[in-house]
């Protein structure tokens, strides 16, 4: 599903910052992988590259057979629309849209018919247990519910790759456990490849594989004992 070859990412500025210093990595279809590391290790940069939000300075980022480094801005947008879905720590729900509308947003961007959108949104909300909260604004939901809504928005496109940036970072431990359980279910039942960037050991232990980053390099890559079960 994912292949990174000699990926380097530097940020220009008064002094150049090397966020990723030569990453080589492969993640198979249907895997659930956690990426951990201290602040500044390059976790978020790596996730941005995997999702086509950013491009590497050099190297190859091949996702579902597409080398994102060579894609145009528009090509990467269309790629995201069809292949990747996101979950963010801060949810990034549109505050002025109701939950149903938030979930429907990527389908509207893809220009789908209203009846299909309605059907897919209802199913996605059912999958995350939020069917009763569809007509509420994000402000009216708890943190866990907001993240569920964000997951529903990620699920609704049936994208084969789900990228999660600190999905439990804003939640208490009980709500965090619920979200992790939901992600595992999605991985198990739908076969969705999931990559989670996290500081949370509980989140990491929910995954089958753990990749550790330090100073922009892969420090360790191992299976998680009992993870993903």
């Amino acid at each position: 599903m994912l292949k990174l070859h000699d990926v380097i990412k530097t940020y220009a500025g008064k002094s150049e910052v090397k966020a990723l210093a030569g990453i080589n990595l492969a993640i198979g279809t249907g895997e659930m992988v956690a990426i951990m590391g201290p602040s500044g290790s390059g976790k978020s940069t790596l996730l941005n590259l995997l999702g086509g939000l950013d491009v590497p300075t050099s190297g190859q980022v091949i996702v579902a057979g597409t080398d994102l480094a060579g894609e145009s801005e528009k090509g990467r947008s269309l790629f995201r629309r069809s292949t990747v879905s996101y979950i963010f720590q801060a949810y990034h729900l549109m505050p002025t849209l109701k939950v149903r509308q938030n979930v429907a947003l990527p389908l509207h961007l893809a220009g789908m018919a209203a009846t299909v959108i309605e059907e897919k949104v209802t199913r996605a909300l059912q999958d995350v247990g939020l069917e009763a909260r569809g007509n509420h604004l994000p402000d009216e939901l708890s943190g866990g519910e907001r993240q569920r809504a964000a997951i529903a928005r990620a699920l609704v496109t049936d994208a084969p790759l789900l990228l999660a940036d600190e999905p439990t970072g804003n939640l208490d431990s009980a709500r965090g456990a619920e979200i992790l359980e939901l992600l595992r279910t999605i991985n198990r039942e739908r076969g969705t490849t999931i990559v989670i960037v996290t500081h949370d050991h509980n989140a990491a232990s929910a995954c089958a594989r753990l990749i550790r980053l330090r100073d922009g390099r892969v420090e360790g890559d191992s299976a998680v004992a009992g993870g993903g079960v």
Binding site: S77, F88, L109
Partner: peptide, 16 residues
């Protein structure tokens, strides 16, 4: 800009 970022992350093209 955050809304724009979210839209872009969800697959909106620059033209959209």
């Amino acid at each position: 800009r955050r809304d724009i970022g979210t839209l872009r992350a969800l697959g909106a093209t620059p033209r959209q």
